[in-house]
Amino acid sequence: MTALPQTTAKKLGLVIDLDTCVGCQACVTACKGWNDQGAGLSDQQPYGADPSGTFLNRVHSFEVQPPEGEAQIVNFPRSCLHCEDAPCVTVCPTGASYKRAEDGIVLVNEDACIGCGLCAWACPYGARELDQAAGVMKKCTLCVDRIYNENLPEEDREPACVRGCPTGARHFGDFADPDSKVSKLTAAREGYALMPDLGTKPVNRYLPPRKKDLRHEASVLAPLLDIQASGFAGWLDRVLGKI
């Protein structure tokens, strides 16, 4: 279904907190592990000189030099943003790529995919990888096979990467609901979209790193007295006199 739905009842997606992400890569292998079973995310030359495999989530790290102050490192997870105006969907010739009307999740119907790769070209965010073994396009499913899965306990009905993230830097929820955790976090922490000018209208939001390296007022530490002048004994008296 190549045409995009006009609106979706829900807008499910992720909030990723760049102030909290330590770049541990746990979400990367949690995702690989969940999606590898059965569905299969293949690896070529797994023990060879040039290994290469399909992953639906990758964590980069950038070095940021602010205009003033010391350089910083920001860890940056990257997966499908489940765009509202998903160009990857409209370019697809087969209808394999589609956006679900009920919750906005962008999926690939692998049974229909011809592996032309056009959707991966159309995605500005590198969220799609063509699986070398299967010959079809793979992408983040927002763990559609978990979030509604009645075989899983209620509390586990969230994406594998969110469940596994040790710092809790990833949040899952419905952006259409202003009271959801993701909407509130986005509002409170000024969550933003990636490359908004490209008109893809990503659903996922990133929370910016907080301001860093702020100096503290040193006045709390005013010396009790001039130790040079009054000597250690004077200091001792002052200190112990305080009890």
Partner: peptide, 25 residues
């Protein structure tokens, strides 16, 4: 073994896993 995830009841990790743990398979 088909899949490994964290044990939510466990005092150490409370359900989460690191990159290594999730690749135990």
């Amino acid at each position: 073994v088909s899949y490994i995830e964290g044990n939510r009841d466990h005092p150490v990790n409370k359900g989460v896993l690191c990159a290594k743990g999730a690749s135990g398979i």
